[in-house]
């Protein structure tokens, strides 16, 4: 089977997966209790004609089948309908928040993967040592701390008491105009949320990395690499890591797949203007179209991340490349 047909098959599978997810996405949200117009009506006590207009706006006046077809067609065109809450197109809502999320969660994910991997490798190399035990306990601790609580503690200590970092937002109020100052301002605002995310995330990567490394380090080719007189660094980072990366690739790919939703609570605690906060708001306000839209995008990203993981796998492992 050629590489091309392999990729094509995988891609076709991915497309089918996405279509199924979309359908489920539609069905689940239609099955949810309640109805958005009523909620708005409650909030502001609308008159019947206004209620009718809202039904029309959200397409809720049509039969279910029409709604389904419309939903599928529009989703594929990149239109996810209007947010019940902001009443703006969801795609727009998502696009304005996307860069912030990519910046924060991307940075934090990369940092925690790098930190987690280094710690995992060191812990595996010195298995049972103080380094190992400390790193792994901290990893576990970070992994199990509730992020909202951690975020608030960070806010209270570094924001309220020490005043080293800001309490909210992506930029200062008002945002600086000088581009360099703006970049530094954003970095300053990013610090605490990134820190919180890294604390939460690195442990998982460290544990997986450590387990994979310990596995690989017992392999015969590692002993041979040592016998060859390679220094320990080369043994670890070249011979062992490359092999131990194989299980990590899937984990990393999934991390990027869930990038958009990865920082729900962190973004909320730190008032970061990103998609995580958008999802959180949408959940609280039961903004179904918004949730639908974002779930759709996340599914696509996860499926895509899986595809990419497969390709990277092939790059890392010649045995797979061959097939």
């Amino acid at each position: 089977m050629g590489l091309l047909s392999y990729v094509a098959k995988r891609a076709a599978f991915a497309v089918v997966t996405i279509l199924i997810i979309m359908t489920m996405n539609f069905v689940i949200f239609r099955m949810m209790p309640g109805n958005p117009v009523a909620m708005i009506a409650d909030m502001v006590r609308l008159r019947p004609e206004q209620v009718a207009r809202l039904y029309e706006l959200f397409g809720l006046d049509k039969p279910l089948w029409d709604q389904y077809v419309q939903y599928m067609v529009q989703s594929l065109r990149g239109f996810y309908g209007y947010s019940y809450y902001s009443q703006r197109p969801i795609a727009e809502d998502i696009m304005v928040r996307l860069p912030n999320t990519l910046l924060l969660v991307g940075t934090a994910t990369v940092l925690s993967i790098v930190i987690g991997m280094v710690i995992g490798i060191l812990a595996a190399a010195r298995r049972g040592s103080l380094v190992d035990v400390t790193a792994i306990s901290f990893g576990f601790l970070g992994n199990s701390v509730p992020v909202f609580w951690l975020g608030l503690i960070l806010l209270l200590v570094f924001g309220v008491d020490l005043k080293w970092f800001p309490i909210r937002g992506t930029t200062s109020v008002p945002a600086p105009t000088d581009p360099l100052a703006l970049v530094l301002d954003i970095m300053w605002h990013m610090t605490l949320p990134t820190f919180a995310l890294v604390i939460i995330l690195f442990g998982g990567y460290a544990l997986i990395m450590r387990a994979a490394m310990i596995d690989v380090l017992t392999e015969d080719y590692i002993q041979l690499a040592r016998a060859k007189g390679l220094d320990e660094r080369t043994v670890l980072y070249k011979h062992a890591l490359r092999n131990a990366m194989l299980p990590m690739v899937t984990v990393i790919a999934l991390a990027f797949g869930f990038l958009l939703s990865g920082a729900l609570l962190t973004e909320t605690v730190f008032s970061w203007y990103g998609l995580g906060r958008y999802i959180w708001d949408a959940i609280l306000k039961q903004d179904y179209p918004a949730l639908q839209g974002i779930f759709f995008i996340i599914s696509v990203m996860v499926v895509a991340a899986n595809l990419i993981a497969d390709l990277v796998y092939g790059f890392l492992d010649p045995r797979i490349r061959q097939e």
């Binding site: 015969d220 080719y221 092999n243």
Partner: peptide, 14 residues
């Protein structure tokens, strides 16, 4: 130098 016992697995697959 040596030819290790599990020479089959002593070559790094990647």
């Amino acid at each position: 130098s040596m030819v290790p016992q599990a020479a089959m697995n002593a070559l790094n697959p990647v």
